[in-house]
Structure formats: structure tokens, C-alpha cells
Computed example of a mutant assay.
Amino acid sequence: MTQINLLRQKTSLCLLVIYVRYLIGGAYVFSGIGKAMGERFIQAGSMQIPPMGMTLDVFFETLYRTGLWWQFLGWGQLVSGFLLLTQRWSTLGAVAFLPISINIFLITLSMDFHGTPLITGLMVLANLGLLGWDSSKLSPLLQPNQDTTVSIHWRGDQLGHPRYWAGLGLVIFLTSISFGNRVNPPLWLLVCLVEGLIGWLGWWFFRRGKPNDERL
């Protein structure tokens, strides 16, 4: 645990963790909003049912026709993504995401999504990395019936500016909600990347104006 706390003092790693949360949270909000609103993932008119087996479009249409479960899956992604994007409740978001991310990875693996399992597998690893980063907060849950003292410092997790990073997360959340499944994913990703870059530049310029003893 001491090693994790030492890593949390490194500015570059803190920034990496913050932006990984943005990436995963934004991606699941983007993909989950359509499901939560009861929209199809693939248009029904494009479906083709083969003599044997099931194609991806038929698979998603079957999930869509479950109705309540389809929307529940979308809301699960939406809420978990929001928690990650807030940074303040990111630990809870990472815990909620673990079964979701593993489930999605196994689906892409089982249905032969070509290169997609590589992406979803990396997201599972990133999810596990976020849980490892917050292991000091989770350790009391893994050690029941033991006297444990938990000390949480925002400065070592969000570079001393939790409200700033939470605000940027809200911008990315609203952007992902607005785009949803209705536009090209590359366009959504580009807009979020620009927002993230502007946010990083804003933090960097603000940090430059601080005295050396106040910098991280």
C-alpha cells in the first residue's frame, strides 16, 4: 500500500489516472445513453439471419427486444460512467464498472468481434488499474472485522483541484450525452479530446502561476 501512496504523489501518474477515468467514463456514457433511452444499437433493417448461428446485428436486436434489461444495461453504463467522470466518486464508479467491463469483454470474445476484444480487454485492464490506484480506499472492504484507518487526500489524487477536474468531467459527460449513438464515434472522440486538451492547458497555466512550494 505504501508503494501505491508514493505513486499517487507523482503528477504525471495522477494526470494519467484522471484522463483514463475520462476516457472510460465518456466511452460508456456515449455507448450507454442509446440503450438507456430504448434505442437500437443496430438498425433492424440491416439484419440478416443466417441458416446457422447468429450474426452480430441479430444478437444486438435480440438484446434490444428484451426491453427492460436492455435499458437497465444502458443505465448501468450511464451511471457508472458519470461516477468515473466526476473524479470525486470515481472509486465507486470503478467498482461498478468491473462486472460491466468483464461482461462486455466476454461478449466481444464469444461473438468474434474481430479486433474489438483487444479494445475491451484493455478497458478491463484499465478498470483493474483504477481499482489498484484506489486500493487504499478499498482495503477495509477486503479486510472485514479489522480495525483500519483510512486517510484520503484529494491533493494526492486530483492534484489539489478536485472541483476543476470534476467540472471538466461534467463537460465531457454532457458532450457524450449530446452525441450518444446518433453520430460518428470519431467525431465524438475528437470533440472530447479537444475538451480534454483545453482542460489540461487550463490546469497547466493555472499551475504555472502558483509559487513553487504550492506545486505538486
Rank of each mutant, 00 (worst) to 15 (best):
Met1Thr: 10
Thr2Ile: 11
Ile4Tyr: 05
Leu6Tyr: 03
Arg8Ala: 06
Arg8Met: 12
Ser12Glu: 09
Ser12Leu: 10
Ser12Asn: 05
Leu13Cys: 02
Leu16Asn: 00
Arg21Glu: 01
Tyr22Lys: 11
Leu23Ser: 14
Ile24Lys: 08
Gly26His: 06
Val29His: 14
Phe30Val: 09
Gly32Pro: 07
Gly32Asn: 09
Gly34Asn: 14
Gly34Arg: 12
Ala36Thr: 14
Ala36Tyr: 06
Ala36Glu: 07
Gly38Tyr: 02
Ala44Gln: 08
Met52Cys: 05
Leu56Lys: 15
Leu56Cys: 10
Leu56Phe: 08
Asp57Phe: 05
Phe60Gln: 09
Leu63Asp: 00
Tyr64Asn: 09
Tyr64Trp: 11
Trp70Asn: 13
Gln71Phe: 04
Val79His: 06
Phe82Arg: 00
Leu83Ala: 12
Leu83Trp: 07
Leu83Met: 14
Leu84Cys: 14
Leu85Arg: 02
Gln87Tyr: 04
Arg88Leu: 02
Trp89Tyr: 11
Ser90Leu: 01
Ile100Gly: 05
Ile102Lys: 14
Phe105Tyr: 13
Phe113Glu: 07
His114Pro: 07
Thr116Pro: 00
Thr116Leu: 13
Leu118Arg: 08
Thr120Lys: 13
Leu122Ile: 15
Leu125His: 04
Asn127Arg: 07
Leu128Phe: 10
Leu128Met: 11
Gly129Lys: 03
Leu131Ile: 12
Gly132Ser: 12
Ser136Asp: 13
Ser136Gln: 13
Lys137Leu: 07
Leu138Lys: 05
Ser139Arg: 10
Leu141Pro: 03
Leu141Trp: 03
Gln143Trp: 08
Asn145Gly: 10
Asp147Thr: 15
Asp147Asn: 15
Ser151Thr: 15
Arg155Asp: 12
Asp157Gly: 03
Asp157Met: 04
Asp157Ser: 03
Gly160Met: 15
Gly160Phe: 10
Gly160Asn: 11
Arg163Lys: 06
Arg163Asp: 01
Tyr164Ala: 06
Tyr164Phe: 15
Phe173Tyr: 04
Ser176Glu: 14
Gly180Asp: 09
Gly180Ser: 12
Gly180His: 09
Val183Cys: 07
Asn184Trp: 01
Pro186Ser: 07
Trp188Phe: 12
Leu190Asp: 00
Leu190Pro: 01
Cys192His: 01
Cys192Asp: 07
Leu193His: 06
Val194Trp: 00
Ile198Arg: 00
Trp200Ser: 08
Leu201Glu: 01
Gly202Tyr: 00
Trp204Ile: 04
Phe205Trp: 05
Phe206Cys: 08
Arg208Thr: 03
Pro211Lys: 13
Arg215Thr: 06
Leu216Glu: 03
